[in-house]
Design a protein around this nucleic acid. Structure first.
Lengths: 152, 152
DNA sequence: TTAAAATAGTTCTATATAGAACAATTTAAA
DNA sequence: TTTAAATTGTTCTATATAGAACTATTTTAA
């Protein structure tokens, strides 16, 4: 069977990212895609380590580190060493970041409406169920690979 | 309703990309994700313009231009001006690129198997149907935006 | 209790990605 | 036919992204 799920996913990610960023700018929010993903996680639960953010966003650890850099410079996040475990860096939201949340979520909803145009709620739910399954599979594969690497 | 299709898509794209690249390297194929997407299109139909590749991959035109640059340097593609319409650049596969196809597609199949682990053929088909619908919607949105911009 | 292993982050390097501005060419309109 | 508009690519700049190698800590084991 000729399938192209991966190709579709990449294309959708591309388009979606560009459209969402324009929508954000139109609404006066200067937050890029990568930054938005980190905020999305931190708005749910503040004060996470770099590794936790990496896990939740599926971004590589060093990528998170770099994006956080930029966000600290823009006064969106703060960085501090965890005194209890000094290997860890705790990333927290600034007041400014907290103030962005409501507006950002409104734009997210707009984006969502575009994304799921023509979908019934049931279809949406089913589709997201599939996505969640794939995400789980791929996450497990990557974790397994990491373990193998260590054993070598 | 709280949905997060876009977030899932981005995460899956990330993971999938990393896993696929490792798989390619393990199989001795030195082709990156972005390069693979352009090859995927050109293997189906050779000798396309930059704009056509941009349309088929959903990559921005300038992104295609840059990635093609790298691939020309690596003797994967050739670039030549279309004598009939000298604004256009025709991108073609080299013999080397053609020789990579079979192996690349084998790895793609492996990746596919991982991606769809636990999916029945019907589920796969349904899922890809959803993806195709979303891709269509987003493509239309972006094209509309481009038109609006011109009118301004 | 000290040496080895594991964990957490960062830096370095390279590619991917896109917006804005631009140059070259072709097409449409006056 | 000559000028304005549209099309096609590229360059410039900035951010996103990840692998590899590294430093600093903490944990484990001998």
């Amino acid at each position: 069977m000729e399938t192209k799920g991966g190709f579709y996913i990449t294309q959708i990610k591309q388009l979606q990212g560009r459209i969402f960023e324009r929508l954000l700018i139109e609404n006066g929010i200067e937050i890029s895609g990568g930054q938005g993903r980190i905020l999305f996680i931190l708005w749910k639960r503040d004060c996470l380590t770099v590794s936790e953010i990496s896990r939740e966003t599926s971004l590589a650890k060093n990528t998170v580190s770099i994006i956080v850099d930029g966000m600290v410079k823009k006064n969106i996040l703060t960085r501090e060493i965890n005194p209890v475990n000094r290997r860890q860096t705790i990333i927290s939201l600034t007041e400014y970041a907290k103030s962005l949340r409501e507006k950002y979520e409104m734009v997210s909803q707009q984006m969502n409406a575009l994304f799921y145009e023509g979908f019934t709620p049931d279809e949406q739910q089913e589709f997201e169920g599939y996505l969640a399954r794939i995400l789980k599979t791929l996450t497990e594969i990557e974790n397994k690979e990491k373990k193998c690497k260590k054993t070598q």
